[in-house]
Computed example of a mutant assay.
Amino acid sequence: MRAVVVHEFGPVDSHRIEEIAAPRPQPGEVAIDVHAIGVNFPDTLMVQGLYQKKPDRPFTPGRDAAGVISAVGDGVSRFKPGDRVTALVTYGAYAEQCIAPESRCFLLPKGMDFVTGAGMTTSYLTAWVGLMVRGQYQTGEKVLVLGAAGGVGLAAVQIAKAKDAFVIGGDLTEEKRQLATTNGADAAVDLSADEIRESLRQQVFAVTGGQGVDIVMDPIGGDIFDAAIRTLAFAGRIICIGFVAGIPTARPNYFTVKNLTLAGLATDHYFDHRPELIQQAVTDIFKMHAAQQITPAIMKTYPLESFQTALDLFAKKKSIGKIVLTTSRS
């Protein structure tokens, strides 16, 4: 089979597609003939050795794979060959065939195509767990989503709106802010404004009647994180999802003044510690999709051979919505 192979960590353009032996599922695993692959920002970090988890080399990157199960290992009871699934793996998705633990696979609903399935897995699970579990969202609350035009950002905007939140989308360009409002945001704020520490608070207070927001979903970090803390209302919660702009330093006194909560999020841990929550999340996500409340905004699909082009969009900050790779099976 053909797969992207990382022999040594390095720039995106240093990695290639190679012909390698197809893997076989071990007990508790399934083999998936991959049709579509969701592209995520952490993929760019992992191939460069900049992600917090560094796989043994050589390895194949990629987290989200959607396709058809071709074989199952001993002990697998929930799936059989021929089932259409999407899977979230720690790595291995950038290939024509992927091995996934049974616990990380989910049946695709009837009518959902592979591109949509691959485009939803990591982004929507992250947004759902961040909002509903870490953020402890309550109906009618106000939610500020930073990086609102990204994969996780748009998922958070859509899910929050489906849950009857007042949603504010924050991003750097007018095009990205318009995408957020098109996908359900009630208002948009400019993250490129001068003196962001003060201007972000002013923008948010202007659209919330001076109240601030109950939850901030932050996949950006850096100076934006510091500014976002100031937009929170009493007992507000800020959810740290990623650090595209750098790792900020949180000052504890900010949190005591208004009884604020800082919550981190690493979705993968829930597969090990709270697997029932993952299943609850997937069920709810598919239910909202069936009700036409949420769906990934697929910016572009590329063939697997163009994985470098797809990943390069993150480096150039040109990624909008969701990017998906497809294999020859599609």
Rank of each mutant, 00 (worst) to 15 (best):
F243E: 01
V213E: 03
P27W: 08
M288N: 07
I238G: 06
K287R: 13
R274D: 14
A127C: 05
K53F: 10
E19G: 11
A93F: 01
D33M: 12
V213T: 04
A263G: 06
G73Q: 00
K176W: 09
G73E: 00
R230M: 11
F9H: 04
T90Q: 04
K163W: 10
F106Q: 09
G92E: 03
A66L: 07
K142Y: 11
I294D: 10
Q97P: 04
G184M: 03
Y302D: 03
S199L: 06
E174L: 14
I215N: 09
G140H: 13
D268M: 05
Q136F: 02
L277N: 09
D64T: 02
F255I: 00
D268E: 11
D226A: 14
V257M: 12
G130Q: 02
I320A: 15
I320M: 15
P11L: 12
M120D: 10
P296I: 01
A95C: 03
I224Q: 15
T86S: 12
V12R: 05
I69M: 04
M112A: 13
S77H: 14
V129E: 10
S192E: 03
A36G: 12
T86C: 10
Q178S: 14
L131Q: 07
A156W: 06
G75M: 04
A297K: 09
R78T: 07
D13F: 05
G147W: 11
A149R: 06
P252E: 01
G38L: 05
Q178P: 01
K54E: 05
E141H: 15
I285F: 01
E175Y: 05
T60L: 14
K110W: 00
D268Q: 05
L125K: 09
T122G: 01
A188F: 08
P27S: 14
F205I: 01
A65I: 08
V72H: 03
V324R: 04
I99T: 06
V47A: 06
V133W: 10
H269G: 12
L107R: 11
E19K: 12
